[in-house]
Design a protein around this nucleic acid. Sequence first.
DNA 1: GTTTCAACATACCAATCAGTATGCAGCCAA
DNA 2: TTGGCTGCATACTGATTGGTATGTTGAAAC
Lengths: 223, 223
Amino acid sequence: MPPMPPPSEPEAANKAARGGDSDAPRQEIVKAAAELFMDLGYRATSIDAIAERMGSTKGRVYHWYRSKAEIYFDVQRSAMRRLTELVEPIAREGGPPQQRIERMARAHVDCLLHDLPMQKVSVQGLETHVITSDSVRHAKAMREIVGLRDAYEALFCEVIDEGIRAGVFVDLPPRLLSKPFFGALNWVTIWYRPRRLQTEDDLQMLGEMLTEFAVRGILKERN
Amino acid sequence: MPPMPPPSEPEAANKAARGGDSDAPRQEIVKAAAELFMDLGYRATSIDAIAERMGSTKGRVYHWYRSKAEIYFDVQRSAMRRLTELVEPIAREGGPPQQRIERMARAHVDCLLHDLPMQKVSVQGLETHVITSDSVRHAKAMREIVGLRDAYEALFCEVIDEGIRAGVFVDLPPRLLSKPFFGALNWVTIWYRPRRLQTEDDLQMLGEMLTEFAVRGILKERN
DNA sequence: GTTTCAACATACCAATCAGTATGCAGCCAA
DNA sequence: TTGGCTGCATACTGATTGGTATGTTGAAAC
């Protein structure tokens, strides 16, 4: 595999953007790691492979991260942050619950499809494979990730609850109803493989189709 | 972990039941392996751990299997065989497509829930993590598993196609429509954790709820 | 110009683990 | 009773890999 050219993105002037923590080199590592986690899984991905994908060596990775698990948790954080940034504004909007949940689902799927590596790692229960190896050491980070996911799913559950009380969604516990709802959407991370000839239009149609399926699943039939 | 007592099942008289291949000790290994694959993932599961779970040692495992990948493929085969045995008869029955697809989905979910370890390993794209390590050596076994899964999914696609032509299901390619359909059902292998206080009734209600959600997703709305 | 330090690269270690080689007990046939 | 064979257990090896310890370099600070 030929070494990748340096990213040469507009990397200027975000040095101390955040608390001095989340940097540009860290994001590059997270991206490379997410791609490998997606293809090989967490265990099978070696730090050397992550470094090689960036055209560097292990030293660089361990300069920015103290362990592989820490990289993994950053992948999770990034994924949840992007989803929340996209979906939360829609959830806070007004309007009928049916339209809001549809727009939220659509944004959710679009994010999955356009950021597949990170989102695939995040969305599947891959975490269990990590915690079991070091259940004690990373308990705090695990709780944080679980908290982020719970808060994100709560956005949907609240809108679903609204729709139930309005009588337009089937009358079941929102927490339970959200499971197959997310299933219909998130399953795309399991079966979908990006093709060469796939256009942006194809992705849009796919997103629309999955969204409509999921919404039909919660809509009460109106005879 | 205390060593498990010997299974002491009715293990008599199935010695040469099949072609002399699939035996009772092999099934015990497959079961132990499936449970560990589910909890830890393929890579993180060591042969020693599989043996320890059976109260034996590595020698026993390697007496019946030549590699870890071979065990993995047997888990897949067993899972697909059970599903197909349950669902195929329903698919071959007569009756309206809506009722048939509902019964098939129900049988599918029930099988997932009652055989979680094997089915979870089978249903998720865990396979990719295996092939990438030895893509050439296990290509044949991989093709077999993929073939089994394709044939199984085709059972659903055919009934869906019937329903589309009858005008009761939404008019989309069955192959595509089946993706979120399976997603709504299969996602249960990701979020569901068996609880101590879970009764058989709870499982039944869960299966019913997921099935109804999935069927609503393909049903054309009748205004 | 030299001190300092961030940002890496290189070399190395210890642990894990798939797979192999070998030992060994019991059973069955001759 | 012996020879062979099945069904394991035990001992061992080579390869991988997470993590550490130690160089090295370029540039800013003074």
